[in-house]
Design a protein around this nucleic acid. Sequence first.
DNA 1: CTAGGGTTAG
Length: 878
Amino acid sequence: MSKTNSIAPLNTYPTYHNPRNKSNHAKSPNCFIFFRQSWTTYLPPPNFDLFCSSSVGVSATLSKATYDVAMDKNAKIRKFCQMGDLRNAMELLKRSKISELELHTYCSVLQLCAELKSLEDGKRVHSIITSNGMEVDEVLGAKLVFMYVHCGDLVEGRQILDGILNDKIYLWNFLMSKYAKIGNYEEAASLMKKMQKLGIRGNPFTFTCILKCYTALAKVRECKSVHGYAFKLGFGSDNAVVNSLIAAYFKCREVESAHNMFDELSDPDVVSWNSMISGCVMNGRSWNGLKFFIQMLHFGIDMDLVTLVNVLVACANVGNLSFGRALHACGVKTGCSGDVVFDNTLLDMYSKCGYLKGATDVFVKMGETTIVSWTSIIAAYVRKGLYDDAIMLFDEMQSKGLRPDAYTVSSVVHACACSNSLDKGRNIHNFIKKNNMALNLPVSNALMNMYAKCGIMEEAHLIFSQIPVKDIVSWNTMIGGYSQNSLPNEALELFLDMQKQLKPNDITMACVLPACAGLAALEKGRELHGHILRKGYFSDLHVACALVDMYVKCGLVVLAQKLFDMIPKKDIILWTVMIAGYGMHGFGKEAVSTFEKMRIVGIGPDDACFTSILYACSHSGLLKEGWKFFNSMRSEFNIEPKLEHYACMVDLLVRSGNLSKAYKFIETIPIKPDAAIWGALLSGCGIHHDVELAEKVAEHIFELEPENTRYYVLLANIYAEAEKLEEVKKLQTKIGKGGFKKDQGCSWIEIQGKFNIFVAGDTSHPQAKRIDSLLRKLRMQMNGVGYYNKMRYALINADDMNKEVLLCGHSEKLAMAFGILNLPPGKTVRVTKNLRVCGDCHDMGKFMSKTTGRDIVLRDSNRFHHFKDGVCSCRGFW
DNA sequence: CTAGGGTTAG
């Protein structure tokens, strides 16, 4: 079976929304300077007497003498604080008597502790305050909260805030924003609820912060409720609040609400426009995002760095290179180019627009590179199929001392998957284990995909089973992996498991359908077709293609063709599937005309497509056409034939009886022929009874694949037909001793969604007697009209030799008979066999179709046989 | 003293 019949790569993943943890860029490294400047505004109030006679009791009772000393000490400590000398301030504080210290001195020290983020000193001041018996009132409490929160002890800060019930909004906001920053959105939300309970009015900061939290928690209803509350308090026209709402709605996929918010803004600023652009992009409406950008320029709003970054992403998504170049120019003009984030995004834009040179140019000119730059340039090489370069870049990056993150690793694992580099893949897997990155879901998914692509499903499954919370990509990857590795049962089983937890999507369909195709599970396939129609997945080319392929392989070519005709934009893979489909069913002329139609619509054939058309020609005996296509590969399309193309040509020669030509042809192949090519010739020797050539050919084969039983059986049959029974016996003992892997012949038929599986000589089936008597009756009739029992077919597979199965016991006969007995009259009997059909069963099929008046479609491991009125569609070509 | 919009992977 040619490889081309499988559909395109199935693991194209859905792009789904990933709420990002935004780093707060406002926290620049010079925040200390910022605090030092603002701190000077917190110098002691001018009227000290007034201050002392207020609620602070301790100093109010001081005598004039102590007062002066105290004044001196307090002033000294505050002086140290002013200069940022925490050490001396602390020393003096510790050495001072309770009676000497004033509230404001404590405040100054706490402020400095906060600025220097010295939690230890802060705590000491706190304990001094407590042991001094100072009342922690609103002023001192606020300062303590500020210190604790600033130093990162949110729990202590929260506790003090709860105790003093300060209604200073900034303190609440401060705590809330810190919780948001560390990702503890639940705690932030609980603060918000407490504020509401206490009747503390929020301000714009409160709302922007809480919206961010609820968005991160994906709480749409809570966002809406905050929306209502903020508007009730009169913040409906505050740009920051409305901008936050726009972002929140977009991230919750409430696109319409976001647009409504924007429309209500009387004076949208650059952030509002940026929010619209990014919102459109993240909701898959990049083109709309670009429109907003143009509109924004019409309104005279100046773009900034964020604008450009957003628009570049949109541009990358729509793949518009020329627009991207214009944006590049904008970046230079506005001074954004040179910024790492801008350059990273620009690089990625070029890469996604397919312009690798542009991406590398940006990369080499970058002064500063980050992990994102490297990941992007690696992904750029992967996108172009330059997998080895990508892997090299990965190594180079590490030698520069940059540590790959989950993004980088995913890209490189993907490169290994695409290039079938199992060894490199394993290396990176080890790296991942060492760095504890296997906990990252996309990384695990990428690894599974890599192992699946390399055909190691056990390894893939091990990873799959260790993922605690699997997403739809995990399931799809695993199902698709089983499908592509010819493990359709495992694929379907997993598909059932998946549905207990998740709803399948379009990609799931494209992953399961090949499993149905593999098993010829028509009922299941139809069920999926229904689901696809209800969900509107047919518009996805991958899905449509998989559906066509499924129907082809379930034997319903006409239906497959109808679906094929309905697909408006066909790609090369779809055309290839249809051509291969016709080929499998022996509709060579249709295959050729489909190929020509494809040429007319301007799609150039690739090498896989040529395999399909050559395969079709050989299976329909189209000798002349076959050679024409084969020769055109080089002359017209500049495609160098691969082994599989040569194999088709050998097949074609063999089928048309040109055995010696085929032998000579094999000798001229510039690539070393494999066992399959010689095997095609060997079976040709069987059909044309050429024992001498068969022996010569078999030598080549046994050298290449000494453990493949198939070829021993093939040769044994050739000997059997030539009545060289001694030779047959020799081979039989060889096979018996060899302990070779045997393919057991088995056939199955699906009736009302249930699979009935038959193996050769099986008498355990509940209907075994009925089947047997039907077959006996048919056999007698056959003999009566001149068919005779052809002993030469008796050795069609290795199993037969061991079990000495009688002719009549072949699994495909049993399955066909079972179908005739159990399907309503007029319904086509569809049987699938895992090996090639044997000649006697083929005769039986033809005869059955005539005497019972039934259409029988038999799919074997090589092609389809449509039995109708005593004739088979293969016309002897199989 | 606290805020709203931004880059990389499958």
